[in-house]
């Protein structure tokens, strides 16, 4: 009991310390890298333990695979707690799934650093790069048609094309004022 009380106290002390540092500098870069990495490692291990609890409860519906940037992440149903940008890559509610007519799937994820920064390398995608979306026992193959950045204002503007479409979006890794958008067009399904 004493150990638990001690752990909680120590945790709050560390938080207060860090908040103080941030308030002074208002810049997370002042936090030593080794601390960030250490915390990330700890966080990852705990997260992995938590994920083992039950996949079924998370309503897994598919997977996003981008080999070029080494991404293979599960997708969760709209409305599921796991379909959250702070947990996984996230399907936005405007999406029309690939087994439907005029399909357009919007997927967002974090860029930057850390375990949740699934789209940290999204800006490395070029035209013709391949993206695979597994959904309902089918694989939908997309090719990158265009990549662009637009002003970050909480919205993205995309034109629906005459094909199954996949839109990947994240914050620009190079400019905080911009939103990165990758427009992909399906070319086959298996």
């Amino acid at each position: 009991m004493l150990k638990v009380t001690f752990r909680i106290t120590l945790t709050f002390v560390i938080i207060l310390f860090l908040l103080t540092v941030v308030r002074i500098n208002d810049n997370e870069n002042v936090i030593p890298k080794f601390i960030i990495n250490k915390l990330d490692n700890i966080q990852d291990k705990i997260m992995l333990l938590k994920e083992e609890i039950s996949h079924e409860e998370k309503n897994e519906i598919g997977e996003l695979i981008i080999n070029k940037i080494g991404l293979a992440e599960k997708l969760y149903a709209l409305g599921s707690n796991e379909n959250n940008v702070n947990k996984h890559v996230t399907i936005l509610k405007e999406s029309i799934f690939p087994d439907e007519e005029n399909s357009i799937v919007f997927i967002a994820a974090h860029s930057g650093t850390g375990r949740l920064a699934y789209f940290k390398d999204l800006n490395k995608l070029k035209e013709e790069d391949e993206i695979i979306l597994k959904y309902k026992d089918k694989k939908y193959y997309y090719k990158v048609e265009s990549v662009w950045e637009e002003a970050k204002n909480g919205f993205i503007e995309v034109t629906k094309e005459n094909a199954k479409q996949l839109i990947l979006t994240t914050c620009s890794p190079t400019n905080e004022e911009l939103q990165l958008i990758v427009n992909c067009i399906a070319y086959k399904e298996v």
């Binding site: 940008v85 936005l92 967002a108 650093t113 949740l116 909480g154 919205f155 993205i156 994240t170």
Partner: peptide
Amino acid sequence: IEVPDTKT
């Protein structure tokens, strides 16, 4: 469409 804040 509205997109979530995806900056870490």
